[in-house]
């Protein structure tokens, strides 16, 4: 059981990294990765929201949609639930944990219906995970997102020096760098099963 969870965790952090292997959540990946502290803040906020979203959408799917035979509505219902959830979390944080709200507050609305968050909840259902497995998988995906953000903010701080040709400055060089980082992560494919064998 524990081994299975460890495999799920490591798989979602490294092999199926949401940003670098599945290409979800590219918008914050490119938008907020300019500085390390912002990238970390965004990553932590995404982990938090992914966990909360999974914890909410899992019961919604299995206790509301499945009994009524409405599995095909999962996308629209999940968007609705996640958007409301993030707003709710923001209100609660603002009231009871102002410190955390100050740290995550800027990033929360950005993730309201981020495709990575939606992707995690839907993929957990598609992969047939149980509740605990879903949570572990979400944690892994969030950690993977954080890892990608932190690595890429490091890469980005070296970009856009004076040596970069003018035509490549800004987004072009960023996208090329992102593709190379993504290639590096494809190298993880296939190692996880053997890691815990």
């Amino acid at each position: 059981m524990l081994k299975e969870l460890a495999i799920i965790l490591m798989t979602s952090v490294l092999v199926n990294n949401y940003v670098l292997s599945r290409f979800l959540g590219i918008c914050p990946f490119l938008g907020v990765s300019k500085k390390l502290d912002q990238a970390t803040g965004m990553g932590v906020a995404v982990i938090f929201v992914m966990l909360m979203a999974t914890a909410t959408t899992y019961p919604v799917y299995y206790f509301i949609l499945v009994p009524n035979g409405l599995e095909y509505l999962q996308t629209i219902v999940f968007i609705l639930v996640i958007a409301a959830l993030v707003q709710f979390i923001e209100i609660v944080l603002k009231k009871y944990i102002p410190g955390l709200h100050k740290a995550l507050g800027v990033y929360l609305p950005l993730i309201t219906t981020n495709c990575a968050v939606l992707g995690v909840t839907i993929n957990n259902i598609t992969d047939g995970y149980g509740f605990v497995q879903s949570l572990v998988s979400s944690l892994g995906c969030g950690l993977g997102f954080l890892l990608a953000m932190v690595i890429f903010s490091g890469v980005r701080s070296k970009l856009d020096g004076p040596e970069t040709p003018k035509a490549f400055r800004g987004l072009p060089s960023t996208l090329i760098a992102a593709s190379i980082v993504s290639l590096a992560f494809i190298g993880f494919a296939g190692i996880i099963d053997n890691l815990f064998a």
């Binding site: 509301i64 009524n68 035979g69 409405l70 509505l73 219902v77 609705l80 639930v81 958007a83 409301a84």
Partner: peptide
């Protein structure tokens, strides 16, 4: 009909909670 009702109820619950 069930689909519409379910989505509306979910939306309504979310709205009321917010």
């Amino acid at each position: 009909v069930i689909a519409v009702i379910v989505v509306s109820v979910v939306g309504l619950v979310c709205g009321v909670v917010l």
